[in-house]
Design a binder for these strands. Structure first.
Lengths: 192, 192
DNA sequence: CAGCGCCTACCTACCAATAGGTCTACGTTA
DNA sequence: TAACGTAGACCTATTGGTAGGTAGGCGCTG
């Protein structure tokens, strides 16, 4: 039973973008990785733009699901914050790659038209969700010192992405941990 | 009096990398921008790798100078922190570009050999300098709530880079301001 | 100070490799 | 038998880079 080819292509492309950027891989690379001829890729994704779009669409869905899962699994704001930190930490793959959105966001001018809109939407989703997490953490006391939910959310997202960058060059996950330490510390451990 | 060609090439290349990434520009682009034939660029920079290297070298020098200048102009940790925030804010050019180091750091695998080392060095310089700023801010009371200088430095750098990313896609500098708000607020205004 | 050699800065004209993409054809399978 | 997934052969534009040459300036020497 082989994996669905379309999914395999998306997986390979996503890994490539997250490791080397949108301009850092080609259909030839994809072809070699997935084991399908270059021309055949065009059957699934007519253009590289279409591929990027599909990539981002899928990423948006995965994010939405992840947030829902975290909400279901954790009741307090602090626990949810810890969970999203763990997610970003895992997503960095020990500093070998970045969040897809981050990778795309660095050079929006090079991106196909529709993708930019998706990125904006993605970022706003993360921001909104983080805002709700801080609001909850403020009201249930599980995150220390919250005043402005929106500013907290924006700062948290910046730190999460910045921490991924910090560990990228040296492929050293401890760089992530140090950068995120202060944010982590503000999430109270298990509900007292 | 025309600008030195070599400098003009470096300027153009730096802007290109910061706006579109290392894979996002070509010698042809450079040629059109500077007004010199493509082949002539090779006279100044034999390979694209050499260009990247020169770019990063210059950036390291500029950073060192900037830190020295800030130290000279501002006596307190809080004032120095505010100054570096302003520097990163300005460097984003209202969300049209990123810090060169950030742009390079996103896809280290695509970079020529020596450059990676320079980036690591650059980042460590920023980290060290920020560490000294927080240490000063802690001892002179000009930055609120500092405990761990190193963690503060790592977090601050992450936020600074993350804030640049935040405003990049929408080219909206207010995204930077919101993300950085909390860090800014910790730097006490003029010495009381 | 004329002439020589050399260097810098630039040029035109190429190159092989790779980029993303097209067209047509062939075997499977529903 | 029609649609799907794949492949071969090919295309055009662009990539970073090279070969070879030219014009002008500088310093040395006879």
């Amino acid at each position: 039973m082989q994996t669905d080819t379309k999914t395999a292509l998306l997986d390979s492309a996503e890994a490539a973008v997250r490791a080397r950027g949108f301009d850092g891989f080609s259909y030839a690379d994809l072809s070699a990785d997935v084991g399908i001829r270059k021309a055949s890729i065009h059957h699934h994704f007519p253009t590289k733009a279409a591929l990027a779009h599909a990539l981002m669409m899928r990423y948006c869905e995965v994010l939405a699901e992840a947030c829902t899962d975290i909400n279901a699994a954790h009741a307090t704001g602090g626990a949810r914050l810890s969970a999203i930190i763990a997610l970003y930490r895992e997503a960095s793959a020990s500093g070998q790659q970045l969040c897809l959105c981050l990778s795309f966001a660095t050079s929006p001018d090079r991106l196909p038209d529709g993708v930019k809109t998706l990125i904006v939407g993605f970022r706003q989703s993360v921001l909104d969700w983080l805002g709700s997490v801080f609001a909850l953490g403020r009201s249930d006391g599980s995150i220390i010192g919250v005043i402005d939910d929106q500013a907290e959310a924006a700062a948290a997202m910046a730190v999460l992405e910045g921490a991924q960058l910090a560990c990228r060059v040296e492929e050293d996950i401890t760089r992530f941990d140090i950068a995120i330490r202060q944010l982590s510390a503000r999430a109270r451990p298990a509900q007292g």
